[in-house]
Design a protein around this nucleic acid. Sequence first.
RNA 1: GGGGCGGUAGCUCAGCUGGUCAGAGCAGGGGACUCAUAAUCCCUCGGUCGCGGGUUCAAGUCCCGCCCGCCCUACCA
Length: 515
Amino acid sequence: MAFYVSTPIYYVNDAPHLGHAYTTVAGDVLTRWHRQRGESVWYLTGTDEHGQKIMRTAEAHGVSPQEWCDKLVEEAWKPLWKHLEIANDDFIRTTEPRHTQRVQEFVQDLYDKGEIYKGSYTGPYCVSCEEYKVVGELLEGELCPIHKRPVEWLEEDNYFFKLSEYGERLLEHYDANPDFIQPASARNEVVQFVRQGLQDLSISRSTFDWGIPIPWDPKHVIYVWIDALLNYATAVGYGSDQAKFDQTWPADVHLVGKDILRFHAVIWPAMLLANGLRLPGRVFANGWLMVGGEKMSKSNLTGISPRQLTEHFGVDAYRYYFLRAIPFGQDGAFSWEDFAARYTSELANDYGNLASRVAAMVGKYFDGALPAAADAGPAEQAIADGLSAAVAAADKAIGDNLDFAGGLGAVFDFVRQVNGYLSDQAPWKVAKDESPQAQARLATILYTAAEALRGVAVLLNPVMPATSERLWVSLGAEVALGALADQRISEAADWGRLPAGVSVTKGEVLFPRLD
RNA sequence: GGGGCGGUAGCUCAGCUGGUCAGAGCAGGGGACUCAUAAUCCCUCGGUCGCGGGUUCAAGUCCCGCCCGCCCUACCA
């Protein structure tokens, strides 16, 4: 069975921003972590390309909706994921036949099972916007929030999914699986919402045609959310590749922004129940990135772009920063200043500098050949124990709980411990004593520090693959132990894996000081 | 209106089922050291734990009320 993780499929109305990248990086780190546990993994991302908004946007740019999507996907979305070192196993687009055909089959199935019926939808419609509004967003006196004009109440024939019949079963599932929706605050909201009672869901639209036609009534297209959610099934072989589907389905983790939690925690499982498919393991809602007290969103595109940050801080630091600084699942304040402070203190000073000083001393005192730990004692045991503790804590936090901040905190506590160890042992002083005993101590101290870094490289590889690889090579570990990505988390704390005699080289600084 | 979450040192945050829980990191101040990316290590300053009541031998930690912030309250992705 594969550990299957999905991001939302992003609406390609516009270019990706920090919020999209935040979720996608988190999923990438999670899946890389599980790969290093030795598990089979499937990481899926993609794009949601149907719906009225995309149709309108394309029209405004004088191109077809498909052309608009193609351009954005190829020129903005995929390149950004490549830039950020996202190692997704697949990228699904909802306009691909492998998706649209299966969606039609799925909906047809539900129709055949009597889960879908024809009804009429009544809602407030703004003539100027040419679209239905959400009741909650209307201004006092039923005015359109954009045009400040009265809405009209229109009625149209639609197909409805019998969502209202699934409230009890959903509540039972939430109850039996307390971790199904995370974090707990998100779970509470959903449970409360479902308890209030569910209404049937209109799942077709007939006022525009940019979507997947309802198979038995092609004047209607399938509501974008029904279309979009099904990507998680169609991308892993639903209805087309049963073997792959069997070994992948269901998703272990659906990562979502908290704005789309309800679709994933209510509508999606109800759809699956209706069609007899197994439910995902959990739906994890991450929070908003707050900039200067305001939510980062597409309406705030004037904000900082991912590439502005990676140009200044580098891709690895970018991947690190948001996961380290913001407890996953909560809203998080972020600022350029905070990023710079963390980069300097944690990455450059604590971690990068540790790698530098260790490599420099092995070079200076042993001509770059890692000496054996001939005289290990309690101080060295404390470091070995520290690594064990860091591995255990990080594995549980990141691999099991999606607590990236906690896991990274554990790793960096260990980095601090190693810096402290070097200060205590002062190998530069020991080096001045040429007696065999002193030289044995010197060798032991530097071996211990290098071996500690070996463990750190393994633990940080899912988060910062490029710099971890550089450290790995610099320690001579690539030659002795093989590829970094093949190192198992479960073996990361096995003390003494890095063999004496390997060639330790200083290499480029891991995290250069910022200007 | 109903509901959810949060309000702990200058900043960002830990504090599970009540009893060293008043903490960490960063920033600020002082010192040590020199292997290193002028990095590191040690010490230190610093908080009426939003406000007011209550329960208890004991409350950031439970109850009530209030104030403030963010979010949800269904078909816009």
